[in-house]
Design a protein around this nucleic acid. Structure first.
Length: 690
DNA sequence: GAGCACTGC
């Protein structure tokens, strides 16, 4: 989301909204009354209590609702109480980059200091801190995990506050597990776990010491290891909740009619609608437009604004344009508006009760995106979006009984829904050898862990004892990339094509380099053809990158070629970081010029497990994976679509009605045995070739 | 000839 705001620019003003989201703030606040504002926050009443608990307890869990002020105030209280004395640093982690920047800026302003001095932040590509000067440091939890690779005990921090712990992202969960471990070695360290709701109980159980030591009076045994729990009320307005009386069969139609009902009967105020994805949203916009036309004049005052992350930046920013007088803004959004973006002025929320969620099947090793019912916690979060400026109303398109009896309290933590390859290598690199016995806040399935161990073993990252190999395993862990991509970079050094492979790795790290939503699909396809390489998509990426450089990194060139300029800038940035990492690890930086064979061999060294063979008996482009004989097809967006080479490698699978391979190259099967003899025994492969 | 919830290093 960093496209919304660049540090150092003045407008629009961003303010932390206590949920890691960002609020665009209209009226500038005066410096004079900052102190008074701070004291009006609900958390202020708990200042002494918080400081006392942190002083006396190893772990303090703060349950703070929206608008409590915990994120901005607690680090300042800690600093005022001396936790940053003697060169120590107070850390506060956030799940998202933009939240890190916004909160740091806000706290620096409240303290009247220059951002990057006493108050700083670190996110990937940006370290706005000064060593020896910065006392309060905001950072993404991913960055803190990376810091642990150099300093496993995080010795420079006196207090670490993990904010938004209820979101249960993979990085947060790994961090919590590791911090619990660190605590035993560092009695001086204090943890604050900040969570929005109910999870406090399970969180408190997690931080409960296995056997509680008795503390004889007067003896200093360090802090109490029992976690303390403190609740701070929020400052949101009351939101009235409406349920449907009967379950709805078509939530899209129900959404549209609810929306029009609100518009007809309720006073002015913007509406926020939660749907699942782009398809839903586009369909809803069309339905509403048609319905509004049918109904005539009364429904003409709607300003429909779709919102999802795939939308071009300019269109995303439309959600922040002030609602014209006499109009009612209707933002139709994915989950992005649940946590990442906060909209000012929303009074009505329509909640479909669904969102798209990732699920991972360790047996097939496939991640799937599925429309699934949301949790109660999610429903409450969505509801809260209506009470930011004045009392609001939330329309839930499910019954009250369903909410009470069927909905789960919390969603399944991300770590239990994901492929664990990156997560396992990170723990291994931090010296956690017993992955299956690691104390997780929520344990992933052993199948998923075993599958990750297998993949890492086949990549040569782990040895027979499941220990990180040296140097390969340690080197791969150093890269901020999926291990299979990192492996491909290491091999490229030996094959003499690291410059090309690093470009490919950077492109694969971002969602897409193409512009979406401008012009027709046909135009985009034609534009892509200019860069198409017979060898496949990865080689085509190299052509785009080359063209971009030759144009002098021109935005006009991008526009003409349907290439996303922001994405290309990101590619350059990531590429730079990967080059520096590669150099540090002794990977020879070299270009292979036009030799696409070595490029594809390097890709094969990382992705050999994703090899597929064209099924000769079928004529519809059906492939079979070598590993599991699964039926897969080349995605129509690939340059190899309908080309159907006999042997291919894919980067990832996306499953809809069929399993589609995305980002595909053609290979020679002999490269497979060359790259991974242990994985492809000769006999087996030979029998498939003939 | 079709589809990409959302983050992060």
């Amino acid at each position: 989301m960093s496209q919304f705001w660049k540090p150092g620019t003045e407008k629009p003003r961003l303010v932390d909204d206590e949920e890691g989201g960002v609020l665009f703030f209209n009226s500038p606040s005066g410096y004079a009354n900052i102190e008074r504002q701070r004291q009006r926050l609900p958390v202020f009443r708990y200042r002494t209590a918080i400081l006392y608990l942190v002083e006396t307890h190893a772990t303090t869990i703060v349950v703070g609702e929206t608008g409590s002020g915990k994120t901005t105030q607690i680090p300042q209280y800690l600093k005022e109480a001396g936790w940053a004395d003697g060169g120590r640093v107070i850390a506060c982690t956030q799940p998202r980059r933009l939240a890190v920047q916004a909160v740091a800026a806000r706290v620096a302003e409240e303290m009247g200091v220059k951002l990057g001095e006493e108050v700083g932040y670190t996110i990937r590509f940006e370290d706005v801190t000064t060593q020896g000067v910065t006392m309060i440091k905001f950072l993404t939890d991913g960055v803190l995990l990376r810091e642990m690779m150099d300093d496993p005990l995080l010795t420079k921090y006196s207090v670490i506050m993990v904010d938004e712990a209820h979101e249960r992202s993979i990085a947060t969960d790994i961090l919590l597990g590791l911090l619990k471990k660190i605590q035993r070695r560092r009695p001086d360290l204090r943890l604050i776990i900040s969570s929005a709701t109910i999870q406090a109980k399970s969180m408190s159980e997690f931080f409960q010491p296995r056997k509680s030591r008795r503390r004889p009076d007067g003896e200093d045994l360090g802090p109490n290891t029992e976690p303390a729990v403190l609740s701070v009320e929020g400052r949101g307005f009351n939101v009235q909740i409406h349920y449907v009386e009967e379950p709805v069969s078509d939530y899209l139609r129900a959404t549209v009619s609810t929306l029009l009902l609100i518009h007809d009967q309720e006073p002015m105020g913007d509406i926020l609608v939660f749907l699942t994805g782009q398809d839903d949203i586009d369909a809803a916009v069309q339905l509403i437009t048609e319905e509004a036309q049918n109904r005539g004049k009364n429904s003409s005052g709607l300003m429909l604004v779709p919102l999802y992350s795939g939308l071009p930046r300019a269109e995303q920013e439309l959600v922040f344009t002030p609602t014209p007088r006499g109009k009612r803004k209707v933002v139709i959004s994915t989950n992005i508006a649940e946590t990442s973006i906060t909209l000012e002025g929303v009074v009505y929320v329509v909640d479909s009760g669904f969102s798209k969620q990732r699920f991972y099947n360790p047996i097939t090793d496939i991640e799937n995106l599925v429309v699934a019912p949301i949790s109660k916690a999610s429903a409450r979060q969505r509801t809260g979006r209506a009470g930011r400026v004045r009392p609001g109303k939330c329309y839930r398109l499910y019954t009250e009984e369903y909410f009470a009896k069927e909905m789960s309290d919390e969603g399944i933590p991300e770590i239990q829904r994901s492929n664990l390859v990156s997560c396992v290598i990170q723990l291994k690199a931090l010296g956690i050898d017993n992955i299956l016995g690691f104390d997780w806040p929520a344990s992933p399935s052993s199948e998923a862990m075993v599958r990750a161990l297998e993949v890492l073993y086949s990549l040569g990252v782990l040895d027979d004892d499941a220990k990180l190999t040296s140097p390969t395993g340690f080197q791969i862990a150093e890269f901020p990339l999926e291990p299979m991509i990192a492996k491909m970079i290491l091999s490229s050094g030996e094959l003499g094509c690291s410059e090309e492979i690093i470009t490919i790795a950077a492109v694969l790290s971002i969602q897409t380099i193409w512009v979406s939503g401008r012009g027709s699909q046909k135009e985009l396809d034609e534009a892509k053809l200019n860069f198409a390489a017979a060898e496949g998509d990865h080689v085509s990426f190299l052509n785009v990158y080359k063209g971009f450089l030759q144009s002098g990194k021109s935005p006009q060139w991008c526009h003409k070629n349907f290439v996303n300029y922001q994405a290309m800038k990101k590619v350059i940035e990531i590429r730079g970081q990967l080059r520096r990492t590669a150099q540090r690890l002794g990977v020879v930086l070299k270009s292979c010029e036009r030799d696409t064979v070595v490029v594809r061999k390097a890709i094969t060294s990382g992705f050999f497990a994703n090899a597929c063979r064209l099924d000769a008996s079928s004529h519809d482009g059906k492939y079979k994976t070598i590993r599991g004989s699964q039926e897969v097809y080349i995605h129509p967006s690939s340059v190899l679509f309908r080309v159907n080479p006999k042997w291919v490698l894919y980067h990832s699978l996306v499953s809809t009605d069929k399993q589609y391979m995305r980002n595909v190259i053609s290979i020679d099967p002999s490269w497979l045995t060359e790259a991974a003899p242990h994985f492809y025994q000769h006999q087996r492969l030979n029998s498939m070739v003939h």
